[in-house]
Simulated assay, not measured.
Amino acid sequence: MKTLYIAYYTTLRNVRDYRNLTSMLALPIVLMLILGSALAGTFQIESIDPVKVVLVNENEGELLQNLKEFLQQENIKEIVDTETVEDLDQGMVKIKNGEAFALVHVERDNEGKIHVYKRNESMFRGSVVQNVLDSFVQSANAEYAYLILGSVDGNITPYESIREETINPDGKRPKGLDYYAITMLIMTMMYGTTYGASSMAEEQFYRTEIRLKSAPLHSYEVFVGKVAGTILTLVFDASIIFIFTKYVYDVNWGDNILFIMFTCFTLAVLATSIGVASFMLIGDENKTQALLSILIPVLTFLGGGYIPFQSMSSAMKKLSLLSPNYLGLRIMLNTIYEGSQVQIRNYMAILWTASLFLFIISALRGRRGLA
Protein backbone atom coordinates (compact mmCIF):
# COMPACT_ATOMS: atom_id res chain seq x y z
CA MET A 1 0.00 0.00 0.00
CA LYS A 2 2.84 2.42 0.78
CA THR A 3 4.28 1.73 -2.66
CA LEU A 4 0.93 2.59 -4.26
CA TYR A 5 0.78 5.88 -2.36
CA ILE A 6 4.28 6.81 -3.53
CA ALA A 7 3.39 5.87 -7.13
CA TYR A 8 0.15 7.87 -6.96
CA TYR A 9 1.73 11.05 -5.62
CA THR A 10 4.70 10.75 -8.00
CA THR A 11 2.29 10.58 -10.94
CA LEU A 12 0.14 13.40 -9.56
CA ARG A 13 3.15 15.66 -9.04
CA ASN A 14 4.39 15.02 -12.59
CA VAL A 15 0.97 15.63 -14.14
CA ARG A 16 0.50 18.86 -12.16
CA ASP A 17 3.77 20.20 -13.50
CA TYR A 18 1.84 21.91 -16.30
CA ARG A 19 4.85 23.63 -17.83
CA ASN A 20 6.79 20.39 -18.29
CA LEU A 21 3.67 18.45 -19.28
CA THR A 22 2.78 21.00 -21.96
CA SER A 23 6.25 20.85 -23.51
CA MET A 24 6.20 17.03 -23.44
CA LEU A 25 2.91 16.99 -25.35
CA ALA A 26 3.09 20.09 -27.56
CA LEU A 27 6.55 19.44 -29.03
CA PRO A 28 5.79 16.03 -30.61
CA ILE A 29 2.33 17.11 -31.80
CA VAL A 30 3.78 20.13 -33.62
CA LEU A 31 6.82 18.23 -34.94
CA MET A 32 4.78 15.36 -36.38
CA LEU A 33 2.58 17.84 -38.26
CA ILE A 34 5.57 19.75 -39.67
CA LEU A 35 7.60 16.68 -40.63
CA GLY A 36 4.57 14.74 -41.86
CA SER A 37 3.52 17.59 -44.14
CA ALA A 38 6.99 18.51 -45.38
CA LEU A 39 8.05 14.93 -46.18
CA ALA A 40 4.69 13.54 -47.27
CA GLY A 41 5.97 12.94 -50.82
CA THR A 42 8.59 10.51 -49.52
CA PHE A 43 5.83 8.08 -48.53
CA GLN A 44 3.73 8.37 -51.69
CA ILE A 45 3.81 6.03 -54.68
CA GLU A 46 3.15 8.40 -57.55
CA SER A 47 3.54 5.73 -60.25
CA ILE A 48 4.87 2.25 -60.80
CA ASP A 49 6.39 2.92 -64.19
CA PRO A 50 9.84 1.40 -64.80
CA VAL A 51 12.49 3.06 -62.65
CA LYS A 52 15.14 4.85 -64.69
CA VAL A 53 18.61 3.45 -63.91
CA VAL A 54 21.98 4.43 -65.38
CA LEU A 55 24.59 1.69 -65.80
CA VAL A 56 28.21 2.84 -66.11
CA ASN A 57 30.00 0.90 -68.87
CA GLU A 58 33.67 1.57 -68.21
CA ASN A 59 35.06 -1.97 -68.17
CA GLU A 60 34.51 -5.28 -69.95
CA GLY A 61 34.63 -7.52 -66.90
CA GLU A 62 32.51 -10.64 -66.60
CA LEU A 63 30.53 -9.21 -63.69
CA LEU A 64 29.44 -6.17 -65.70
CA GLN A 65 28.49 -8.28 -68.71
CA ASN A 66 26.40 -10.61 -66.54
CA LEU A 67 24.72 -7.62 -64.91
CA LYS A 68 23.88 -6.16 -68.34
CA GLU A 69 22.30 -9.42 -69.43
CA PHE A 70 20.35 -9.64 -66.19
CA LEU A 71 18.96 -6.11 -66.55
CA GLN A 72 17.89 -6.80 -70.13
CA GLN A 73 15.63 -9.71 -69.18
CA GLU A 74 12.01 -9.02 -70.08
CA ASN A 75 10.66 -9.32 -66.55
CA ILE A 76 13.37 -6.96 -65.27
CA LYS A 77 12.79 -4.40 -68.02
CA GLU A 78 9.16 -4.14 -66.90
CA ILE A 79 10.25 -2.54 -63.62
CA VAL A 80 13.73 -1.12 -64.37
CA ASP A 81 14.60 0.93 -67.47
CA THR A 82 18.37 0.74 -67.94
CA GLU A 83 20.46 3.27 -69.87
CA THR A 84 24.19 2.71 -70.43
CA VAL A 85 26.72 5.56 -70.16
CA GLU A 86 30.46 5.51 -70.73
CA ASP A 87 31.80 7.03 -67.51
CA LEU A 88 30.81 7.76 -63.92
CA ASP A 89 30.75 11.56 -64.29
CA GLN A 90 28.28 11.37 -67.15
CA GLY A 91 26.03 9.14 -65.07
CA MET A 92 26.24 11.45 -62.07
CA VAL A 93 25.11 14.39 -64.21
CA LYS A 94 21.99 12.45 -65.17
CA ILE A 95 21.29 11.70 -61.51
CA LYS A 96 21.71 15.35 -60.50
CA ASN A 97 19.53 16.55 -63.38
CA GLY A 98 16.76 14.12 -62.49
CA GLU A 99 17.07 12.20 -65.78
CA ALA A 100 17.62 8.98 -63.83
CA PHE A 101 16.74 7.79 -60.35
CA ALA A 102 19.71 5.52 -59.66
CA LEU A 103 23.23 4.81 -60.94
CA VAL A 104 24.89 1.39 -60.91
CA HIS A 105 28.68 1.37 -61.10
CA VAL A 106 31.00 -1.62 -61.37
CA GLU A 107 34.56 -0.35 -60.92
CA ARG A 108 37.57 -1.72 -62.78
CA ASP A 109 39.25 -4.56 -60.86
CA ASN A 110 37.00 -4.08 -57.85
CA GLU A 111 36.75 -7.72 -56.75
CA GLY A 112 33.05 -8.02 -57.48
CA LYS A 113 31.69 -4.90 -55.74
CA ILE A 114 28.67 -3.08 -57.17
CA HIS A 115 28.17 0.55 -56.13
CA VAL A 116 24.68 2.04 -56.22
CA TYR A 117 23.84 5.76 -56.02
CA LYS A 118 20.18 6.71 -55.55
CA ARG A 119 18.15 9.87 -55.22
CA ASN A 120 16.31 10.25 -51.90
CA GLU A 121 13.01 11.37 -53.36
CA SER A 122 11.15 8.03 -53.28
CA MET A 123 11.49 5.08 -50.91
CA PHE A 124 9.38 2.96 -53.26
CA ARG A 125 11.60 3.39 -56.31
CA GLY A 126 14.67 2.97 -54.14
CA SER A 127 13.36 -0.36 -52.87
CA VAL A 128 12.64 -1.49 -56.45
CA VAL A 129 16.25 -0.86 -57.50
CA GLN A 130 17.62 -2.45 -54.34
CA ASN A 131 15.49 -5.57 -54.70
CA VAL A 132 16.46 -6.05 -58.35
CA LEU A 133 20.16 -5.80 -57.55
CA ASP A 134 19.75 -8.07 -54.53
CA SER A 135 18.18 -10.65 -56.85
CA PHE A 136 21.16 -10.41 -59.19
CA VAL A 137 23.68 -10.72 -56.37
CA GLN A 138 21.90 -13.71 -54.87
CA SER A 139 21.76 -15.43 -58.25
CA ALA A 140 25.44 -14.69 -58.93
CA ASN A 141 26.49 -15.92 -55.49
CA ALA A 142 24.48 -19.12 -55.91
CA GLU A 143 26.01 -19.79 -59.32
CA TYR A 144 29.50 -19.15 -57.98
CA ALA A 145 28.89 -21.49 -55.05
CA TYR A 146 27.76 -24.24 -57.42
CA LEU A 147 30.93 -23.81 -59.48
CA ILE A 148 33.15 -23.96 -56.39
CA LEU A 149 31.42 -27.14 -55.26
CA GLY A 150 31.80 -28.65 -58.71
CA SER A 151 28.09 -29.09 -59.30
CA VAL A 152 26.78 -29.93 -62.74
CA ASP A 153 24.52 -27.39 -64.40
CA GLY A 154 21.87 -30.04 -64.98
CA ASN A 155 21.48 -30.49 -61.23
CA ILE A 156 20.62 -26.83 -60.67
CA THR A 157 16.93 -26.02 -60.50
CA PRO A 158 16.28 -22.64 -62.11
CA TYR A 159 14.02 -20.15 -60.37
CA GLU A 160 12.46 -16.81 -61.13
CA SER A 161 14.24 -13.78 -59.70
CA ILE A 162 11.09 -11.67 -59.91
CA ARG A 163 7.78 -12.78 -58.44
CA GLU A 164 4.67 -11.05 -59.72
CA GLU A 165 2.01 -10.04 -57.20
CA THR A 166 -0.93 -7.68 -57.36
CA ILE A 167 -0.29 -4.52 -55.37
CA ASN A 168 -3.07 -2.89 -53.38
CA PRO A 169 -1.38 -0.26 -51.22
CA ASP A 170 -4.59 1.15 -49.70
CA GLY A 171 -4.21 1.10 -45.92
CA LYS A 172 -1.07 -1.04 -46.08
CA ARG A 173 1.56 1.67 -45.99
CA PRO A 174 1.96 4.75 -43.77
CA LYS A 175 1.41 8.29 -44.92
CA GLY A 176 3.91 10.90 -43.81
CA LEU A 177 1.77 11.94 -40.85
CA ASP A 178 1.21 8.31 -39.82
CA TYR A 179 4.93 7.63 -39.80
CA TYR A 180 5.93 10.73 -37.85
CA ALA A 181 3.09 10.28 -35.37
CA ILE A 182 4.75 6.99 -34.39
CA THR A 183 8.30 8.36 -34.26
CA MET A 184 7.32 11.45 -32.27
CA LEU A 185 5.30 9.35 -29.83
CA ILE A 186 8.35 7.17 -29.29
CA MET A 187 10.52 10.27 -28.89
CA THR A 188 8.17 11.48 -26.14
CA MET A 189 8.54 8.15 -24.36
CA MET A 190 12.32 8.44 -24.54
CA TYR A 191 12.25 12.01 -23.19
CA GLY A 192 10.56 10.40 -20.21
CA THR A 193 14.05 9.39 -19.13
CA THR A 194 14.20 12.85 -17.55
CA TYR A 195 11.24 11.92 -15.33
CA GLY A 196 13.10 8.82 -14.21
CA ALA A 197 16.22 10.77 -13.33
CA SER A 198 14.25 13.51 -11.55
CA SER A 199 12.22 11.05 -9.49
CA MET A 200 15.43 9.58 -8.07
CA ALA A 201 17.04 12.99 -7.52
CA GLU A 202 14.16 14.91 -5.93
CA GLU A 203 14.80 13.68 -2.42
CA GLN A 204 18.30 15.13 -2.56
CA PHE A 205 16.89 18.41 -3.89
CA TYR A 206 14.27 18.72 -1.15
CA ARG A 207 16.67 17.35 1.52
CA THR A 208 14.18 14.62 2.50
CA GLU A 209 16.40 11.61 2.00
CA ILE A 210 17.30 11.50 5.73
CA ARG A 211 13.63 11.39 6.71
CA LEU A 212 13.02 8.63 4.16
CA LYS A 213 15.80 6.54 5.69
CA SER A 214 14.34 6.99 9.19
CA ALA A 215 10.69 6.50 8.08
CA PRO A 216 8.97 3.10 8.35
CA LEU A 217 9.63 2.46 4.68
CA HIS A 218 11.80 -0.09 3.00
CA SER A 219 14.15 1.19 0.34
CA TYR A 220 12.53 -1.04 -2.28
CA GLU A 221 9.10 0.54 -1.56
CA VAL A 222 10.46 3.99 -2.32
CA PHE A 223 12.26 2.75 -5.42
CA VAL A 224 9.33 0.77 -6.83
CA GLY A 225 6.84 3.53 -6.03
CA LYS A 226 8.81 6.20 -7.81
CA VAL A 227 9.49 3.96 -10.81
CA ALA A 228 5.81 3.02 -11.07
CA GLY A 229 4.76 6.66 -10.81
CA THR A 230 7.13 7.65 -13.60
CA ILE A 231 5.87 4.84 -15.85
CA LEU A 232 2.24 5.85 -15.21
CA THR A 233 3.08 9.45 -16.12
CA LEU A 234 4.57 8.38 -19.45
CA VAL A 235 1.61 6.11 -20.23
CA PHE A 236 -0.66 9.09 -19.52
CA ASP A 237 1.37 11.25 -21.92
CA ALA A 238 1.24 8.53 -24.58
CA SER A 239 -2.53 8.19 -24.20
CA ILE A 240 -3.05 11.94 -24.73
CA ILE A 241 -0.88 11.94 -27.87
CA PHE A 242 -2.59 8.80 -29.17
CA ILE A 243 -6.11 10.18 -28.70
CA PHE A 244 -5.21 13.58 -30.18
CA THR A 245 -3.50 12.17 -33.29
CA LYS A 246 -6.20 9.57 -33.91
CA TYR A 247 -9.14 11.97 -33.79
CA VAL A 248 -7.56 15.29 -34.85
CA TYR A 249 -4.84 14.22 -37.31
CA ASP A 250 -6.71 11.05 -38.38
CA VAL A 251 -3.57 8.97 -37.91
CA ASN A 252 -3.87 5.28 -38.71
CA TRP A 253 -2.99 3.31 -35.57
CA GLY A 254 -4.33 0.02 -36.93
CA ASP A 255 -6.84 -2.32 -35.34
CA ASN A 256 -4.71 -3.76 -32.52
CA ILE A 257 -4.94 -0.73 -30.23
CA LEU A 258 -4.26 -2.73 -27.06
CA PHE A 259 -0.92 -3.96 -28.37
CA ILE A 260 0.03 -0.43 -29.50
CA MET A 261 -0.62 0.79 -25.95
CA PHE A 262 1.32 -2.17 -24.56
CA THR A 263 4.23 -1.11 -26.77
CA CYS A 264 3.94 2.40 -25.33
CA PHE A 265 3.99 0.87 -21.84
CA THR A 266 7.09 -1.13 -22.78
CA LEU A 267 8.85 2.00 -24.02
CA ALA A 268 7.79 3.85 -20.86
CA VAL A 269 9.36 1.11 -18.75
CA LEU A 270 12.56 1.26 -20.80
CA ALA A 271 12.76 5.06 -20.69
CA THR A 272 12.26 5.03 -16.93
CA SER A 273 14.96 2.40 -16.49
CA ILE A 274 17.40 4.46 -18.59
CA GLY A 275 16.70 7.62 -16.59
CA VAL A 276 16.90 5.90 -13.21
CA ALA A 277 20.07 3.98 -14.08
CA SER A 278 21.73 7.09 -15.50
CA PHE A 279 21.17 9.03 -12.28
CA MET A 280 22.17 6.13 -10.05
CA LEU A 281 25.45 5.70 -11.89
CA ILE A 282 26.30 9.40 -12.32
CA GLY A 283 24.91 10.63 -8.99
CA ASP A 284 24.35 14.22 -10.11
CA GLU A 285 21.02 15.35 -11.58
CA ASN A 286 22.41 18.22 -13.66
CA LYS A 287 25.02 16.01 -15.31
CA THR A 288 22.45 13.27 -15.86
CA GLN A 289 19.96 15.64 -17.47
CA ALA A 290 22.71 17.08 -19.70
CA LEU A 291 23.67 13.59 -20.84
CA LEU A 292 20.06 12.61 -21.55
CA SER A 293 19.38 15.85 -23.44
CA ILE A 294 22.15 14.83 -25.87
CA LEU A 295 21.38 11.11 -25.94
CA ILE A 296 17.65 11.30 -26.76
CA PRO A 297 17.94 13.36 -30.01
CA VAL A 298 20.74 11.03 -31.16
CA LEU A 299 18.62 7.94 -30.49
CA THR A 300 15.66 9.60 -32.23
CA PHE A 301 17.77 10.35 -35.30
CA LEU A 302 19.19 6.83 -35.46
CA GLY A 303 15.70 5.42 -35.01
CA GLY A 304 14.37 7.17 -38.11
CA GLY A 305 12.63 9.91 -36.12
CA TYR A 306 13.65 12.77 -38.39
CA ILE A 307 14.41 11.12 -41.73
CA PRO A 308 12.87 7.79 -42.81
CA PHE A 309 14.96 4.74 -42.06
CA GLN A 310 14.91 3.70 -45.73
CA SER A 311 16.66 6.93 -46.73
CA MET A 312 19.64 6.29 -44.44
CA SER A 313 22.99 4.97 -45.59
CA SER A 314 23.87 1.33 -44.96
CA ALA A 315 26.22 2.33 -42.12
CA MET A 316 23.49 4.37 -40.40
CA LYS A 317 21.04 1.48 -40.77
CA LYS A 318 23.41 -0.77 -38.84
CA LEU A 319 23.75 1.83 -36.08
CA SER A 320 19.95 2.09 -35.90
CA LEU A 321 19.80 -1.35 -34.35
CA LEU A 322 21.34 0.22 -31.21
CA SER A 323 18.45 2.67 -30.87
CA PRO A 324 15.36 1.69 -28.82
CA ASN A 325 13.46 4.21 -30.97
CA TYR A 326 14.11 2.03 -34.02
CA LEU A 327 13.03 -1.14 -32.21
CA GLY A 328 9.83 0.54 -31.05
CA LEU A 329 9.18 1.91 -34.53
CA ARG A 330 9.53 -1.51 -36.15
CA ILE A 331 7.24 -3.09 -33.53
CA MET A 332 4.50 -0.51 -34.16
CA LEU A 333 4.81 -0.54 -37.95
CA ASN A 334 4.70 -4.34 -38.03
CA THR A 335 1.66 -4.30 -35.75
CA ILE A 336 -0.26 -1.66 -37.69
CA TYR A 337 0.59 -2.89 -41.19
CA GLU A 338 0.60 -6.64 -40.48
CA GLY A 339 4.35 -7.12 -40.77
CA SER A 340 6.78 -9.64 -39.33
CA GLN A 341 5.53 -11.24 -36.11
CA VAL A 342 8.99 -12.70 -35.49
CA GLN A 343 10.51 -9.23 -35.55
CA ILE A 344 7.85 -7.99 -33.13
CA ARG A 345 8.63 -10.77 -30.64
CA ASN A 346 12.40 -10.40 -30.94
CA TYR A 347 12.44 -6.62 -30.57
CA MET A 348 9.96 -6.72 -27.70
CA ALA A 349 12.18 -9.24 -25.90
CA ILE A 350 15.20 -6.97 -26.40
CA LEU A 351 13.39 -3.96 -24.90
CA TRP A 352 12.21 -5.87 -21.82
CA THR A 353 15.59 -7.52 -21.30
CA ALA A 354 17.34 -4.14 -21.45
CA SER A 355 14.82 -2.66 -18.98
CA LEU A 356 15.26 -5.51 -16.52
CA PHE A 357 19.05 -5.26 -16.72
CA LEU A 358 19.02 -1.50 -16.07
CA PHE A 359 16.57 -1.82 -13.17
CA ILE A 360 18.77 -4.46 -11.52
CA ILE A 361 21.78 -2.15 -11.79
CA SER A 362 19.73 0.75 -10.38
CA ALA A 363 18.36 -1.30 -7.50
CA LEU A 364 21.80 -2.52 -6.48
CA ARG A 365 23.22 0.98 -6.69
CA GLY A 366 20.27 2.50 -4.83
CA ARG A 367 20.44 -0.08 -2.07
CA ARG A 368 24.04 0.85 -1.44
CA GLY A 369 23.14 4.56 -1.38
CA LEU A 370 20.27 4.12 1.13
CA ALA A 371 22.33 1.91 3.43
Rank of each mutant, 00 (worst) to 15 (best):
I296K: 03
T157W: 05
R368V: 08
N57W: 08
I76L: 05
P308Q: 09
H218L: 13
V251G: 00
M316F: 13
T288V: 03
M312V: 04
L88H: 07
K68T: 09
E121R: 08
E203K: 11
V152A: 01
K52Y: 02
E209I: 05
P297L: 10
Y206D: 15
G305P: 04
Q138P: 00
M32I: 09
T11V: 12
N110G: 14
A290P: 03
N14P: 02
D170E: 09
L370H: 10
I294F: 03
D49S: 04
L88F: 09
N256K: 10
I294S: 00
V93S: 08
Y5P: 02
A140S: 10
Q65F: 10
E86N: 13
F43T: 02
L67K: 05
P297T: 14
A100W: 01
Q130I: 01
I76W: 05
F70Y: 13
L35W: 03
L370Y: 12
V269F: 06
P50N: 12
G366I: 14
F223P: 02
L364F: 07
D81K: 13
S239M: 12
L88C: 07
V276L: 07
K113M: 08
P158T: 07
G154D: 06
L64I: 14
S122H: 06
I350T: 08
T3L: 08
R330Q: 12
A371H: 15
L4K: 11
S139C: 01
M261N: 03
M187G: 07
L185Y: 00
L67I: 12
T10W: 09
D109L: 10
P28F: 15
T188C: 14
M123E: 06
I282C: 00
